[in-house]
Simulated scan of single mutants.
Amino acid sequence: MHRFVLSADQFSERQRAIVAEEISFYNKLTPKEQRVFEHRVLRFIRYHTFVGREELLVTERMELLISATAIMITFGFNRYLLSKFETILVYPEHYFSNITQEYHKGEANPSYKTIVFSWEDFQEGIKVEDDNLNLGIHELTHALHFSFLTERSYSASQFLKHYKLLLLSLRNKDAQKRLIEMEYLREYAFENQYEFLSVLIEHFFETPEEFRSKLPTIYHRVKLMLNMDVAGF
């Protein structure tokens, strides 16, 4: 997780206070790692266009917290920007999608290069840090996965390699049944491979010690995927 950055951008006191208050991951980093984190968050904000919907005004706090969540997930990588995505849309609350004709809390759509959040639900996700429900982590993991599928980078290849090995280890029906019966991962994890991945990453950051204790083999594989260990962090 140690990274070196030349002439790093740094948070203002106001920006640091916002992130330190709401993103506990940041507070667990060393001062050197915090400088790297800050630089990456500010680059992430510049790299993406944030757009408010339904008359929502996107604030600096919104940009910081969404970007800090993305950088938390990618902090173990050299490649940390979401290459397949350009725009982040923020709705006040759950919104109606013309594509699916349903209400959504969030989505990552690589075809439109867009990530979408309900701000109400995003905030709820970071407010309660140990319920394994974090909309930001969930949708940004989808965005990371979609980006890595078309990238030729070491970070992408390692992530995809270990994810593939994880899926192979769960091809056995008995292994799948044991995982479901444990009831640690919520039911939505078993919708498809994409949702399984995002739910795993939510658990990895929100209840890492419990994850490592209950599912040590899967935890180890996720640790290799993200190139970081947060249990006992």
Rank of each mutant, 00 (worst) to 15 (best):
V5W: 02
L6W: 07
L6P: 00
S7G: 00
S12V: 04
S12D: 04
E13Q: 08
R16E: 14
I18M: 06
I23E: 04
I23G: 05
K28T: 10
K28N: 14
E33M: 13
E33N: 15
Q34Y: 08
E38I: 08
H39D: 15
R43K: 12
R43L: 04
R46V: 05
R46A: 13
Y47L: 00
T49N: 09
T49E: 14
G52R: 10
E54S: 11
L56A: 07
L57H: 12
V58E: 04
V58Y: 03
E60T: 09
R61P: 00
E63T: 04
L64I: 06
S67N: 07
A70W: 05
M72W: 01
M72V: 07
M72E: 15
I73S: 03
I73A: 05
T74Y: 01
F75N: 05
N78S: 08
R79H: 11
L81C: 04
L81N: 12
L82F: 15
K84T: 02
F85M: 01
F85S: 03
P92C: 09
P92R: 09
E93A: 09
E93K: 11
Y95I: 03
F96D: 07
F96G: 09
S97Y: 09
S97M: 10
S97E: 10
N98R: 12
E102K: 15
Y103S: 13
H104E: 14
N109A: 07
P110E: 03
S111R: 10
K113D: 02
K113T: 02
I115Y: 03
V116S: 12
V116M: 12
F117Y: 11
S118W: 03
S118R: 02
S118P: 02
W119A: 07
E120W: 03
D121M: 02
Q123D: 06
E124D: 11
I126W: 09
I126E: 09
D131M: 11
N134E: 03
E139S: 11
L140G: 12
H145T: 02
S147Y: 03
S147E: 01
F148P: 01
E151Q: 10
R152L: 00
S153A: 06
Y154K: 12
S157M: 01
S157C: 00
S157V: 00
S157T: 05
F159I: 00
L160Y: 04
H162Y: 15
L166Y: 07
L167F: 08
L168W: 07
L168Q: 13
L168E: 14
S169E: 11
Q176E: 09
R178Y: 02
R178I: 00
L179K: 07
L179Y: 10
E183G: 02
Y184E: 01
L185Y: 08
E187R: 13
Y188T: 10
Y188F: 05
A189I: 08
Q193E: 15
Y194S: 14
L200G: 08
E202R: 07
T207I: 06
E209Q: 15
E209N: 13
E210F: 04
F211L: 11
K214T: 01
T217R: 05
I218H: 08
L226D: 09
M228I: 15
V230I: 09
G232R: 02
